[in-house]
Nucleic acid binder design. Structure first.
Length: 434
RNA sequence: GGAAGGGUGGCUGAGUUGGUUUAAAGCACCUGAUUCGAAAUCAGGCGUACGCUACAAACGUGCCGCGGGUUCGAAUCCCGCCCCUUCCGCCA
C-alpha cells in the first residue's frame, strides 16, 4: 500500500511512476484523490458532531446530578436527533472509507528510481552472468527423459493423484529434492546468518493481503475449507510461497530498533492455481501447481534495504555457484515488476536440455509497501514508529533447479554426476539407472 | 468439539450498581534539579491511529481482544466471533 499522504502531496510524481509500469494504474490516482477528499470532509463533519455530543452528554450528567431533570430531558431529546444524524453520516463515511481502502489495495508499488524503464521482459537489463556453457560431446537428454529413465519423477501417477502439475518424486528423485532443500537451508542458516523458520502452509486472507497477493491474485490461490462446510471456505489459503506466512510473522507489531535487521529463511511447498497459464511452455516441471521452495525474508531499516537486497541476491547466487550451475542475474524493468516490488532481480539458471534460461529466484525490495498493508512498524531511534522495509527472495525454487541440475550434470554414460556440495546431504555421488 | 476462567497503554495492575477516572497507581523510560560522578530524592514529561495544521504546538475524533447492539452517554450492560489458560473428549 502506498502512503496516502505521498499521493496527496505528490500526485504528478506518483502518477508518472505508476505509469512507468504500463498497467494503467496511474489512472486510479485521480479517482482516489477525489474519494479521499470527500472522505476527509465527511470525517471532519462526523468528528465535529461527535465532539458536540460528547460535550452535551457530559452536561446531561451534571444536570442529573443537580436534579435539573427537565433541562436534562430537553437536552436528551436534542442529542437523540443529533445521534441519528451522526449515525447517518457515519454510515456514509464507512462506505467511502471501504471504497477508498479497496482502491488503495489495488494500486501497485512505485518502482525505485534505479529501476530501468521498460515495457516488458525484452527490456530487462542483464546485470551479470556466471559460469560457462559446457560443451557436451554427446546427445543431450532433457529432464523429462532423464527423470523417466532414472525414475526420478513419476508424472503420470502424480497426475493420477492430484491432476497434472502435481509431481510425484520417486526414489532418488525424492531424495534429491529433499537433499536440495536441506542443502539450501543449511547454507543460508550457517553461512548467511538467516534464522530458519518452519511456517504454516496455510494462511489467512489478511496475510495474503499483507504481502500483496490479494486482492489482485485471488484467482491464482487455492482456497481451503473444512470438510464440506462451505461456511469455512476461504478462511484459509494454501501458501503460494513461504513469503505469505513468513513476511507476516511480525504483522501488527512494533519492533524495537535493535531487532533489525531480521533475516528468516524457510522451506515450504508452494501452491499455485496458474489459472490462464496452462499450456504455455509448461512441459515437464517448468510450471507446476505445486513446487518446493526455500524462501528468504528480511525486515530491515529503510536506509539499509538496498544494500540488503544486493546481499540477498548474492545469497541466492551462492546456491547456484556451489551446485556448479550456469546462471545470469537480470533486473526487472518497470514494466515487468511485480505488484508489491520497488526493485527486483531475477536469477535465471541455464538448462541445457531446454536450451533456455529458467527463473529460479526473484529477489525483491518491497520497501514499506507490505509493511503498511500489515501494519508492521519499528521504533526508530528518534522514537517515531516507522514502517520497515520488507525483502523477499527465493533461495531458490526447487522444481526448476532440479531440472537445471539434472540437465547440466548429465554424463555420457547416462548418469547424473552430483556436484560436490550436494553429496553429503544426498549421500550419493552419482545417480544411475540401476 | 464440550466445560470453566481470562483478554485494560512497554510491563504489572485498579476500574464492571453506565456519567468530573478526561483509563487510577506502580514499574520501566525521557528531560531537568541535586551530585565530582552515580545511586537515592525532587519537579515535569511519557500510548497509538487519524483529522486540522507548517509532516509544529494546541485542539478534535477513534481505540480497554475483534465486530455489532442498547443509551443523551459504554472499559463497564446485551449479542456474535477470535485468542489464551486449565480440564474433558477426539486424533497424527
Amino acid at each position: 500500500m502506498l502512503d496516502i499522504k505521498l499521493i496527496r502531496e505528490h500526485s504528478p510524481r506518483v502518477k508518472d511512476s505508476l505509469a512507468s509500469r504500463g498497467a494503467g494504474d496511474d489512472l486510479k490516482v485521480d479517482e482516489l484523490l477525489e474519494l479521499d477528499a470527500r472522505r476527509r470532509s465527511l470525517l471532519a463533519e462526523v468528528e465535529t458532531s461527535r465532539a458536540k455530543r460528547n460535550q452535551e452528554s457530559k452536561a446531561i450528567g451534571s444536570l442529573l446530578k443537580e436534579k435539573r431533570h427537565e433541562e436534562a430531558e430537553q437536552l436528551k431529546r436534542e442529542m437523540r436527533s443529533l445521534g441519528e444524524k451522526i449515525a447517518d453520516l457515519e454510515a456514509r463515511l464507512t462506505g467511502l472509507k471501504a471504497t477508498e481502502d479497496e482502491l488503495m489495495l489495488t494500486i501497485p508499488n512505485l518502482p525505485h528510481e534505479s529501476v530501468a524503464r521498460g515495457a516488458s521482459t525484452e527490456d530487462n537489463p542483464l546485470i551479470r552472468e556466471w559460469g560457462e556453457q559446457r560443451s557436451h560431446d554427446f546427445p543431450l537428454e532433457d529432464h523429462l527423459t532423464l527423470c523417466e529413465r532414472l525414475k526420478l519423477v513419476d508424472f503420470v501417477r502424480g497426475a493420477k493423484l492430484a491432476g497434472s502439475g502435481f509431481p510425484l518424486y520417486t526414489g532418488w528423485g525424492a531424495r534429491l529434492e529433499r537433499a536440495l532443500i536441506q542443502y539450501m537451508l543449511q547454507l543460508h542458516t550457517s553461512e548467511h546468518r538467516y534464522v530458519e523458520v518452519s511456517p504454516p502452509f496455510v494462511v489467512t486472507r489478511d496475510c495474503m493481503e499483507g504481502v500483496g497477493q490479494f486482492p489482485k491474485f485471488v484467482d491464482q490461490a487455492y482456497a481451503v475449507q473444512e470438510g464440506e462446510d462451505a461456511e469455512t471456505l476461504g478462511k484459509l489459503w494454501l501458501v503460494p510461497t513461504a513469503e505469505a506466512p513468513v513476511a507476516n510473522i511480525h504483522r501488527e507489531e512494533i519492533l524495537p530498533y535493535e531487532a533489525l535487521p531480521i533475516r528468516y529463511c524457510a522451506y515450504s511447498p508452494c501452491f499455485r492455481a496458474e489459472a490462464g497459464a496452462a499450456g504455455v511452455g509448461t512441459r515437464g516441471m517448468i510450471r507446476m501447481h505445486q513446487f518446493d521452495k526455500v524462501e528468504l525474508i528480511k525486515v530491515v531499516a529503510p536506509e539499509e534495504s538496498y544494500e540488503e537486497l544486493e546481499s540477498m541476491v548474492q545469497d541466492a547466487e551462492r546456491v547456484l555457484k556451489r551446485l556448479e550451475l550456469r546462471y545470469r542475474v537480470i533486473m526487472l524493468c518497470t514494466g515487468d515488476l511485480g505488484f508489491g516490488s520497488a526493485k527486483t532481480y531475477d536469477i535465471e539458471v541455464w538448462a541445457p536440455g531446454q536450451g533456455d534460461w529458467l527463473e529460479v529466484s526473484s529477489c525483491s525490495n518491497c520497501e514499506d509497501f507490505q509493511a503498511r498493508r500489515m501494519a508492521l512498524r519499528y521504533k526508530a531511534p528518534d522514537k517515531q514508529n516507522r514502517f520497515p522495509h520488507l525483502l523477499n527472495g527465493s533461495g531458490t525454487a526447487l522444481a526448476r533447479l532440479f531440472v537445471a541440475l539434472v540437465e547440466t550434470h548429465q554424463q555420457p554414460d547416462g548418469s547424473i554426476l552430483i556436484p560436490e556440495a550436494l553429496r553429503s546431504s544426498l549421500q550419493a555421488d552419482r545417480l544411475t539407472s540401476d
